[in-house]
């Protein structure tokens, strides 16, 4: 069976594309799939840093496309998770170092070797975005509950539809306390405007920053709310579509107080 190419995109930068690519990819590999992560943010690579694989880079995606090396030579194997590979972006090239035709040819090859190929898309809608989506079978749009993020995600969704790709939605960086106070848009507000299938809600979680800095995927962390959410998103992408969506909640105050009284909790 041929592998699936899923592009992770958002329009706006800094909403969690790279975090999501690393986390979802790791979770898919943990479920036993052969997974390749491709950093398409040419010129601004950082998926390798988030994955903690920076010091093992020899070749990059531009090298593969230009015939300088084989896919197997450029793909870095993760030591912690079996069947997880990363093709890094080139740091020194421009976003137009690769043409869409070259991307389509490369993706044909990748489909033969992996079950899932996740493309970490650059911000914007220029050439880098075009390259990332040109051969994609599916798309996951990451959106933060902010007006500007929604506006950009909406634009991206329109473009994806025009390329006959039906995107799925992840709302990231939700702060339940702020939503409850009315200081942050709820995920319902986001879905109202974007109106595409929701496949996950991810809370704002300090663990993400910790694992990003340590270079360990969030899904390997214990007690990470974001990690749990990304793991469930991976399950949904892996065919478990009926898995219910968990809405981030404000921690129960009663238990918190009680826990404090009897000396539990942090």
């Amino acid at each position: 069976m041929k592998g699936k190419i899923i592009v992770i995109t958002s329009g706006k930068g800094g909403v969690g594309k790279t975090t999501a690519t690393a986390s979802i990819g790791s979770a898919l590999a943990l479920e036993g799939n052969r997974v390749l992560l491709v950093d398409m943010d040419i010129g601004l690579r950082n998926l390798d840093v988030v994955m903690g694989l920076e010091n093992r880079i020899v070749f990059n995606i531009v090298d593969i496309v230009k015939g300088k090396c084989k896919i197997g030579q450029a793909a870095i194997k993760d030591r912690r998770i079996d069947n997880l590979f990363l093709v890094p972006a080139s740091q020194s090239d421009n976003k137009d170092a690769i043409t869409p035709e070259e991307m389509i040819r490369l993706c044909e090859e990748l489909r033969e070797e992996f079950d899932f190929i996740l493309m970490d898309c650059p911000a914007g809608i220029e050439q880098g975005f075009e390259n990332a989506v040109v051969a994609a079978d599916e798309a996951v749009v990451i959106c933060a509950p902010e007006v500007s993020s929604i506006r950009d995600a909406d634009r991206i969704i329109g473009i994806l539809f025009s390329k006959s790709i039906t995107p799925k939605l992840v709302v990231n960086r939700i702060v339940p306390e702020m939503v409850e106070r009315g200081d942050m848009l709820s995920h319902e507000d986001v879905v109202d405007v974007l109106s595409i299938d929701l496949i996950g809600l991810v809370e704002m979680d300090d663990q993400v920053v910790v694992s990003t800095n340590m270079g360990t995927p969030t899904v390997l962390q214990k007690n990470s709310k974001a990690g749990d959410a990304f793991r469930r998103i991976a399950m949904r992408l892996n065919g478990n579509e009926d898995l219910p969506i968990v809405v981030p909640q404000v921690p129960n105050r009663f238990w918190k107080k009680l826990g404090l009284k009897i000396g539990l909790g942090k």
């Binding site: 506006r151 950009d152 909406d154 634009r155 969704i157 329109g158 473009i159 109106s195």
Partner: peptide, 13 residues
């Protein structure tokens, strides 16, 4: 004299 469309007009469209 009417253009009737169904669907959603998204940002940028």
């Amino acid at each position: 004299e009417v253009l009737m469309l169904t669907g959603r007009v998204r940002s940028g469209q």
